[in-house]
């Protein structure tokens, strides 16, 4: 187990290094930051001066090593636009991103659980199908249309909830619902398929043969086993949510990291892009590390291996 854990940590560190390296070289493909950041009237001397100031006149490999060396010491450079440390800009946005990602994750998986268990327990075939069709129907609507629809209904017509920005819990409701219900269909199908296959297992038959009732068999015996595949997918998906909520953030003007990175790309603010990518990839691998540990915790067979 410890051996496995060390192996996973090594892999995680390599992943983050790889992502940052790729980000560093990819942004350079977009062009010379000095040129892109100066106005059109800038002279060749101006450009040269900025290049020297930013260290862009050195060979690319030297720049990379220099960047990595500073990054190792926590220095990710200064934002080219706002002249404050790039990492500070990103860190400032982290709470907003975490708030939205975790809430919508909880909404999606929580709803999926309740509905998945309900679908197993109801004797009505129609109800089961209705639940599944609603979930699939929601997933078929793109996030931006659904978000706008929510704003139209709850902010414009009913005037119950704010449509923009972040601050109170009320601000969180619409974006979290928009994103969370989008995730719902995926989890619901997974839970449903997983429970259906557990239903056929011998240990379920054994539990019934002991005299156990339907609800206990479902909650005590089937659910812990059905969780195993869900944990893996949920981990990857939570990671995606952390970096990929740009559309939702844009629709609801949510001040998260995703939007910051997109803005920085259009402004060619490279230190901010790399800082953002670094933090997101870090969160991603940490979550997956947690998933691996959780897996060992949930499944004694993994623990033994």
């Amino acid at each position: 187990m410890l051996n496995l854990f060390l192996k996973r940590i090594t892999q995680s560190v390599m992943t983050v290094l790889g992502v940052v390296t790729a980000a560093f070289f990819l942004v350079r493909l977009a062009g010379d930051p000095a040129v892109l950041n100066l106005s059109a009237e800038a002279t060749a001397e101006d450009i040269e001066r900025v290049r020297t100031a930013l260290g862009l006149n050195r060979p690319l490999l030297v720049q990379y090593l220099d960047f990595m060396w500073r990054a190792l010491h926590g220095d990710f450079g200064v934002s080219l636009r706002q002249n404050i440390p790039a990492m500070d800009l990103v860190v400032e946005r982290i709470p907003a991103t975490l708030e939205l990602a975790l809430t919508s994750f909880a909404v999606g998986i929580g709803l999926a659980f309740v509905l998945g268990v309900a679908m197993r327990m109801t004797p009505s075939r129609t109800l089961r199908q209705v639940i599944m069709w609603i979930a699939l129907g929601r997933q078929a609507i793109p996030i931006f249309s659904f978000g706008l629809l929510m704003i139209l209904i709850f902010s414009v017509w009913l005037r119950w909830l704010p449509s923009l920005g972040r601050g109170t819990w009320a601000h969180l409701v619409l974006p979290a619902l928009t994103l969370g219900t989008y995730e719902l269909a995926l989890y619901l199908r997974l839970i449903n398929a997983s429970l259906a296959s557990e239903q056929r297992q011998d240990y379920v038959r054994t539990a019934y043969a002991k005299g156990q009732g339907h609800i206990k068999v479902l909650l005590k015996h089937m659910l812990p086993n059905a969780l195993l595949p869900l944990v893996t997918v949920a981990g990857i998906n939570l990671g995606l949510l952390l970096g990929g909520t740009v559309v939702t953030e844009t629709v609801f003007s949510w001040p998260g990291v995703g939007r910051l990175i997109v803005e920085s790309v259009s402004q060619r603010d490279f230190p901010v892009i790399i800082s953002g990518v670094f933090l997101i990839s870090l969160m991603f691998v940490v979550i997956n590390l947690i998933v691996d540990i959780l897996y060992g915790f949930l499944d004694p067979r993994v623990r033994a291996a």
């Binding site: 011998d202 240990y203 038959r205 054994t206 005590k220 949930l298 004694p300």
Partner: peptide, 13 residues
């Protein structure tokens, strides 16, 4: 008592 003791018991309990 069922046939296959490898699957009759719940692996996570």
């Amino acid at each position: 008592v069922f046939q296959d003791p490898m699957t009759t018991l719940n692996p996570v309990l």
